[in-house]
Nucleic acid binder design. Structure first.
Length: 401
RNA sequence: GGGUCGGUGGUCGAGUGGUUAAUGGCACCGGACUGUAAAUUCGGCUCGCGAAAGCGAUACGCAGGUUCAAAUCCUGCCCGGCCCA
């Protein structure tokens, strides 16, 4: 079952957890591997948004490492826990998702996870399968195993309690529900982002109580969003989606702060650690150009999701359009459709939310037609044939008659 | 259940009857500079109509009320923090 049977269990454990944030514990993982049977490994994802992003990819990639090592890997879709809402890292009550939203989000998850994971070797499960069957009696027995003090130990709860931000009782149920997932599936290993450490660790006493071996908890670093400050999250708008088109992926990567280059090289472009270290050295002593390195990282990570050709094309697009200010060869088209006001066309193209906003953009000098700035807010479309409407440096549309 | 304080634009937070579509910070969008980085700097940041000056609509938890005039006062309701039980 192992790709490299010569290695000791300890070496395999170290290989599997290389680059991880926290392992509870490496010794236990080695012992569990020593038993010689494939481990039951799982990652839980709550379908809270329709799209996965590079932050999810970090932990999905770790999951794939376990697939490659021959283990029984489960991708758990938290269709039930999404209804409760994960309080992790929150400083406010999370609004409840409707069943419709959850259902819609779930549809895209498995397909998008497939961009990183070999889904043919992964078991897909849903936690409503067991959580929705629990009775009130079952639930209060589970709840009685954890104290309020333990819950309040958590940083996010502690901060919210001290700052007077509401904490609803059901939020305490979330970690317990996630712990019960581990019991229901009797798993050996659970993965998660580093913000999930508490949720993972709390599973262990529950499993022991149920007569199972406690799971080994492994967390991966959280990838920062392109703003370089907060963790990547769609709701913060600082994410790079796994399904983003190549040009968007490339362009967004070019916008990350320089300080994030090694992080993105390691966690987003998956460079091996010796290359990341070389990059860090180069940046420190000035022998590496941050912009060139950023392009290499961007190209490598685009290649992971769209292939090498698309990545090279994205780089070429960036260098021409953004760096040299050329008008791109290909762009969406929009028919005039009887519209004559420039502002109307900008709205129709989706480059502004309202006509007033479009008029402002024109006044700001952000709008060009065939490369020439048009600053008259009342400008009308006069071009005879097709012409290129550009807003800002990266929004283009070809207007046809 | 009682007491008390509070609910303002994406967010934080001023504003306590009248040039108030509402100071300011952050976020965001654009311009200049640049490497779509950082730093700096300038402008913008509710919607509709109009070539323009402008006009109109909507907005400070919800619903009413007082007033020439309310985010600001009154009543009721909803939601939250803290204290007491």
């Amino acid at each position: 079952m192992t790709a490299t049977p010569a290695r000791s269990a300890r070496e395999r454990a170290e290989f599997l957890t290389d680059g991880c944030d926290h392992v509870e514990s490496l010794r236990e993982l080695a012992e569990r591997l020593e038993r010689g049977r494939p481990l039951r490994v799982y990652l839980g994802l709550d379908p809270t948004s329709p799209d996965l992003h590079l932050g999810h990819a970090v932990v999905l990639r770790l999951l794939q490492r376990f697939v490659d090592d021959g283990h029984n890997v489960i991708l758990l879709i938290g269709d039930f826990t999404a209804r409760i809402g994960d309080p992790s890292g929150r400083n406010a009550l999370r609004p409840a998702l409707s069943d419709e939203q959850i259902g819609a989000n779930m549809k895209t998850y498995a397909a998008q996870a497939g961009k990183v994971l070999d889904m043919s070797r992964v078991t897909l499960r849903y936690n409503s399968e067991w959580l929705s069957k629990l009775t009130f009696t079952d639930i209060y027995k589970l709840l009685s195993q954890t104290t309020v003090a333990q819950m309040l130990e958590r940083n996010d709860f502690k901060q919210r309690y001290e700052s007077g931000t509401p904490i609803a009782l059901h939020e305490f149920v979330y970690p317990v529900a996630v712990a019960y997932d581990s019991v229901a599936m009797n798993v050996d290993v659970e993965l998660g982002g580093s913000d999930q450490l508490f949720n993972l660790l709390i599973s262990r006493p529950y499993q022991i109580h149920a007569g199972q071996d406690p799971e080994i908890c492994i967390t991966v670093p959280l990838l920062e969003g392109i703003d370089g400050e907060k963790k990547m999250s769609k709701s913060l708008g600082n994410h790079i989606g796994l399904t983003d088109p190549p040009n968007d992926m490339f362009g967004k990567t070019m916008r990350i702060p320089d300080a994030l280059l090694p992080r993105y090289a390691r966690l987003a472009a998956w460079w091996p650690s010796d290359q990341v270290q070389a990059l860090e050295r180069g940046l420190r002593d000035g022998s590496a150009s941050p912009m060139d390195e950023k392009k290499r990282i961007a190209e490598d990570l685009v290649a992971l999701y769209h292939g090498g050709d698309a990545a090279r094309a994205a780089r070429d697009f960036f260098e021409r359009t953004i760096q040299r200010g050329e008008i791109p060869a290909e762009m969406p088209e929009l028919s005039l459709d009887g519209r004559t006001k420039l502002a109307d066309l900008i709205v129709a193209a989706g480059f502004a939310e309202s006509k007033r906003a479009a008029t402002r953009l024109i006044g700001e000098g952000a709008v060009r037609v065939d490369g020439t700035v048009v600053s008259d807010p009342n400008a009308r479309w006069t071009a005879e044939g097709p012409a290129v409407l550009q807003v800002g440096s990266r929004k283009f549309v070809r207007i046809t008659q």
